[in-house]
Design a protein around this nucleic acid. Structure first.
Lengths: 409, 409
DNA sequence: TCATGTTTGTTAGTAAAGCGTACGAACATA
DNA sequence: TATGTTCGTACGCTTTACTAACAAACATGA
């Protein structure tokens, strides 16, 4: 089985109804495609068939193995509440699909028949992750099912926009797919701008994309599942899966612009126009501020974006740098306080250049947040830098594929 | 069947996994109670059985009848995607439970066998709704399945706190339950303060409640399903079901204090400590403000709570009243702008005294919001007063019961 | 008037998915 | 060696929704 033989593209971004890789090498016909376009299911107006329960339980077994590591069938049965019989059947299916392998018998000496340990075959598939959020470079990587990076590639944007930029994305993906030593589970893309649930980039000014159907373009070219989402949304998913963030968290990306990804109850928030997290042009404070490119005065970006921050630091002597950073942090705190209060967030995470953010700026932000919200209730409000560094969007893109294809996260 | 014979209490607040009234007059044994305490299912670590699909589809039929009115079995089959056979079976079950009735044959003249129309028996059950959010009064009502109020009752708080206040709640509920002309589907309660998913009032300073298990107290006393939630959360649900609010909305309650209820993707947000929407003590602006009871300076409540607003209006001549109201509205807009931007909200609703809110205050709020967020993206941001008046919490409490017991909303 | 077509709701049989019971295999311990 | 424990599987049962087929009741056209 080569990478290009992998079938069944999917455009789901949510993790709710797990579209599994069921029927991978499994003989069965694809069984009449699902409802094509992903809709926002406001009313749950979809019937539920027994087969849906099956794929849910399939993901449940997969998830147990993914998180807990090597377990026996009986272990999984105990942990999931399913019977050993059912687990055996599901495991047989997963083994036929090449997702699960037997590791051999458990070593320790206990009474009873020794257990046969199982695990996810973590090298069975690779994931292609793409990060389009940097200013002049598209970067990508091959990741295994644990999110570890095994190969990298990048392409210079060189001022490309529109279809030209799309071709750069395709070329980058092609490079990585060709390097893959195992079937490609899917391609995950973190893009700047506003991205809808179908993976259409509704608006990305820097790339000149307006209604660019990136998901379907990539899916058509590569014939594998593709997920496209906003970069900050991808990042907060990575922080949740790999960085230990709780189910309620907000991740602030500070770079050329300022954005945010929100995770509420373990589910990413997209917003009514898919523009959730677009806080860069919210006005902060009641005392003016610099004029922003958007025309308003005192936008969060004027205080906090890296170009603006660098410019102000360059203009001032070193002695004043801490003051500038502290003021930027205070502004961030002022902007976030109502959000943290309204959403009852317990965790705020910063992503961006550590040398600028992780110091007076972060300290001022957390202090401002505590002073402006109900410290009594938010006693354990934490603010920290991401632990995932530069690869956060790449790994978030991988999480989206894992979540969409295997139902694990 | 009298009201007190209704069984199966439930403490679910979410609408996600609908706990139905299955097995109402249906002979079958309760079939081994569900998982007792509602947990936040961060990981969906629960197996799915075919029977769960059954109750989902049951709610789907119920929901179709609830919203669309009288339909035939064949109509329901077409709208839900289920087969006529399955719909017939589900309808038979619902009729045995007394929830659905046949209305007779359809009148219009079409080819084919005339259809038998069905509808929810909207007088089969009543709902008890309680509103504990007013300052000196607990009010309650009997509501039918459409949310219409058929009887009212209230009890003076008279300074009661703690267990004494709980007894007032019980007495009020008793009055209403005794008046019920049909079985009570459940009791819904909108309480001030922080309420967890099990209906425990973690903190309601005005009532002296700290960890008060109101849900279980009422469930034990009345033997019917009881749902307790925060008043603003109840209110936003009412606005969604009866007031035409979209699936993403924020409702601000302005009264003795200031609070908010958030609906995101049709689901209420509770927050990591169940304190979502507690925005009354978020500091607004960067220019000081009055000292608040909480000790901070410039809390939203100091600008906007009705007592503070009245005090300021009383101190000033009529000519200055518009200025005071406009300033209050601006402050609300300043506080909400980051929330609206971060959540990509399309609808903000105000609840409180119309004579104060619906004028310069609301106008200033919406103008401030538009000026401080990305008006380009938030082109259709609307701000309006609730259309449900004083009964919004009562009707929201009814929605919680409907949602929890029937899976409709 | 009568045959034909349409729509409704029900009956009968089938496939999928889970459960419970029971069994052999393989181990530890008395 | 006998007993108990644990694992994984085989068998049969229940639940669920589906497909196919049918009678009932209507409209329409020859």
């Amino acid at each position: 089985m080569t990478a290009s033989e992998v079938q069944r593209s999917s455009s789901r971004t949510e993790s709710a109804p797990p579209t599994t890789v069921q029927g991978f090498a499994h003989g069965k016909a694809p069984a009449g495609g699902r409802t094509g376009a992903p809709r926002r299911a406001l009313r749950p107006s979809s019937k539920v068939l027994p087969e849906h329960a099956r794929s849910h339980n399939r993901s449940l077994v997969l998830q147990t193995l993914y998180h807990e590591g090597s377990r026996s069938r009986a272990d999984i049965a105990r942990e999931t509440g399913l019977t050993r019989v059912t687990v055996s059947a599901l495991v047989a299916e997963l083994m036929a699909d090449g997702l699960v392998v037997e590791l051999g018998q458990r070593e320790d000496s206990r009474p009873g028949k020794p257990a046969t340990l199982l695990d996810l075959d973590r090298s069975a598939f690779v994931i292609v992750g793409l990060d389009l959020s940097e200013h002049s470079t598209f970067s990508g990587a091959l990741l295994d099912l644990d999110g570890a990076i095994s190969a990298r590639a990048e392409v210079e944007l060189a001022g490309s926009t529109g279809d030209e930029a799309v071709e750069k994305v395709v070329a980058l993906a092609r490079t990585l797919v060709d390097q893959a030593q195992a079937p490609v589970l899917g391609i995950g893309v973190g893009s700047p701008g506003v991205v809808d649930l179908a993976g259409v980039v509704l608006s990305a000014p820097n790339l000149g994309w307006n209604g660019m159907p990136l998901q379907s373009i990539l899916a058509a070219r590569f014939g594998v599942p593709v997920v496209v989402a906003n970069d900050a949304n991808a990042a907060v998913l990575a922080e949740h899966s790999f960085g230990g963030a709780a189910g309620d968290a907000m991740l602030i990306t500070i770079g050329h612009g300022v954005g945010a990804g929100l995770l509420l109850g373990g589910t990413p928030l997209f917003g009514s126009r898919f523009a959730a997290g677009e806080i860069g042009h919210v006005v902060v404070g009641t005392d003016g501020g610099a004029v922003c490119a958007c025309g308003k005065r005192g936008c969060l970006e004027t205080w906090l974006s890296i170009p603006n921050l660098m410019k102000r630091l360059d203009e001032l002597p070193d002695a004043d740098h801490d003051r500038v950073l502290t003021e930027a942090g205070e502004r961030l705190g002022i902007a976030l306080a109502p959000v943290v209060g309204a959403l009852d967030l317990s965790e705020v995470i910063l992503s961006g250049p550590t040398e600028l953010l992780d110091g007076p700026l972060a300290a001022a932000t957390v202090e401002t947040l505590r002073a402006r919200t109900m410290a009594e209730f938010h006693g354990s409000l934490t603010l920290r830098m991401t632990t995932l560094g530069q690869d956060i969007v790449l790994r978030g893109a991988a999480v989206m594929v894992l979540s969409g294809q295997l139902g694990v996260s």
